[in-house]
Design a protein around this nucleic acid. Structure first.
Lengths: 345, 345
DNA sequence: GGGTGCTACTGTATCGATCAAGTCACCTCC
DNA sequence: GGAGGTGACTTGATCGATACAGTAGCACCC
């Protein structure tokens, strides 16, 4: 720390003032070209790395960065196609305005999630898919910076981007009903962070869920089906988990003739397991996903399309453009493909 | 700016010193609980957002973040499966050490790319797939912070993670030769940022390429084939571009019986176009990719497997662990699938 | 009763820069 | 020859916090 080279070090070495050295970097027109050259040369000689960004930022007050926080480990989040699509939309928006993007880990329990929110040198926060009780949420609001929440939770007074979760789920369920399915089961991503998932759950667990989106989608399914059905909660939103769910549900009797999956990731895993069991999709078991990630179209998965990219762009817009609306709810649309309707393949 | 609330504002309002207010946040044990409560209450009342991270960072000197720069627009980079895999590996490493990740846009020409490197409040840089002459590179080295370059360019004295690009390409080419292919053509991603791609190129263009990886892969192909062949340069690394390349190459006479694509993205697009033209893969035209992204296995694409995740992890390790080796070259492996060998489907 | 130790604070320097307001020498021009 | 202008720097304040060295007040104890 003692040997650190600063503007002052350079200034002393050359017998000029701090400001002049600063100007050599930031306002070349303010000093004689020869002096500037001498300063830059001395800087190279002493190994001066240029004006310190931290100090510059403090002084200037500029915060040209946006923080994005996921509810999970980053390394997991970046494997989720829906999260990636959001990231893409958001970067489009931030990039256009010359903002950088800071990725924050949101994993619970370590205290790091709150710490990183408090420490982030940013001008705005985007929180993606957080459970209702996540501490980072309060921490972000406490920073008194623009905050936009994507998907969940929905808090009064907070900027929000979401989709018609319930309506989409209802449409999916009604589609199955119209096709004559009478035994339908549901697979959802985790409802709480207690890692007790991967099992069939009861109504109390659903009501106590901390994830708004899952609650809403389940509610939509039940509405569309005209009543409650068996729900399997997974521990994580990935194909393997959906596969385990399908395995458990196929063992029920009567065996469900259709599975409503609260995400495409779960649905894709479920289809694999169904086929591995020697059953046909949709002949023996129809499957519907949710989100319409790129792989869904490739796999011929019937799903509820949501504008993933658009969500990211809208998040960026709300964060970076002042005086916009507080809430954006984007429409969804049922996309019928081969996993429910052989004719649509 | 004038009305900004700081530690001092709070201190004055309560008749205590700045330091005491600071302690209320950072060292709760250093002051009486009642006073601390009073301070926090006053903070809430006045709307104090807590100690400013920029100031804190300047004072403490801590830089718990790593910057990741891509050579392209961020919104494009996050659509690239290889880049995402790197991101995943890198986040695993940074997360484990409690570091945040700052994504920097690397698009050329705007000056933003250098600016953002200079402004980044980070402790280390990871540069991914940059052309040899990219100005951000020098800017990052000038910061005198740890820098690790992934894939390209390879600079003497700089930390580097890469793979055996040339050997992998050679193995791919030799595989085709062993299968008896005599008319082989190559599709590569851009060799320079001048946006003159999407055309068949000559040897001079190849020699003048700014992207080391493409140069190496082409060299490997030529080695494995025992001589130079037609090379098509695309303007971007995405399936559509690979498709355009395939279209142009299929029009040659004699028509190539095999395409060597320098990335899976290009290969996947090429396969689509070949099939759309009513030709069979591999019957009429065999196709080999490079990278082995997740979609390659799904599509039955013969490709050169590289440890994408591992690359990211290694990058993180080199950045965050002191006294490690300067260079890591990871091995590659040819994975034969249906796109060259019907029996391997 | 004075030395010791502890709690609960305060004051000052510092982090590394930027900025507004000078200073000073030199030139110009009527 | 004096007013005014200009180019090339310097000075001092400031951004918002943290670190370190005090210090006041009080209890304790032989």
């Amino acid at each position: 720390m003692a040997g650190r080279i600063t503007l002052q070090t350079l200034a002393d070495a050359l017998g000029v003032s701090r400001t002049t050295v600063s100007n050599a970097y930031n306002r070349p027109d303010q000093l004689a070209p020869e002096l500037r050259a001498a300063i830059l040369e001395k800087a190279a000689e002493l190994g001066y790395a240029g004006p310190d960004p931290a100090a510059r930022r403090l002084r200037s007050g500029k915060r040209r960065a946006v923080a994005l926080m996921f509810s999970a480990r980053l390394s997991y989040a970046v494997t989720d196609p829906a999260a990636i699509a959001l990231l893409q939309g958001l970067t489009e928006a931030t990039e256009a305005k010359g903002y950088e993007l800071l990725l924050l880990p949101g994993q619970r329990g370590t205290g790091v999630e709150v710490e990183s929110v408090r420490e982030a040198v940013v001008g705005a926060f985007c929180l993606y898919c957080m459970p209702d009780d996540h501490p980072a949420l309060k921490a972000a609001l406490d920073r008194r910076l623009p905050v936009v929440v994507v998907d969940e939770p929905r808090l009064p007074g907070t900027f929000f981007i979401g989709i018609e979760d319930r309506a989409g789920a209802r449409a999916a369920a009604e589609h199955l009903r119209a096709l004559g399915h009478e035994h339908v089961a549901v697979i959802v991503d985790r409802l709480r962070d207690d890692r007790t998932g991967d099992r069939i759950i009861d109504a109390a667990r659903i009501a106590d869920g901390y994830y708004r989106v899952s609650r809403e989608r389940i509610a939509g399914y039940f509405e569309g089906l005209g009543g409650a059905v068996t729900v399997y909660e997974t521990i994580e939103n990935e194909p393997a988990a959906g596969g385990r769910g399908a395995e458990a549900l196929l063992a029920l009797s009567p065996r469900p003739t259709a599975l409503l999956c609260a995400s495409d990731q779960l649905a894709l895993g479920a289809i694999e397991v169904i086929r591995a069991a020697g059953l046909e999709v949709p002949g023996d078991v129809a499957v519907i996903g949710y989100d319409d990630v790129p792989d869904a179209a490739r796999a011929g998965l019937t799903t509820v399309h949501q504008p993933l990219l658009e969500k990211g762009r809208e998040a960026g817009r709300l964060l970076l453009e002042p005086n916009t609306e507080r809430e954006v709810i984007l429409p969804v649309e049922l996309v019928v493909r081969g996993s429910t309707d052989p004719a649509a393949a």
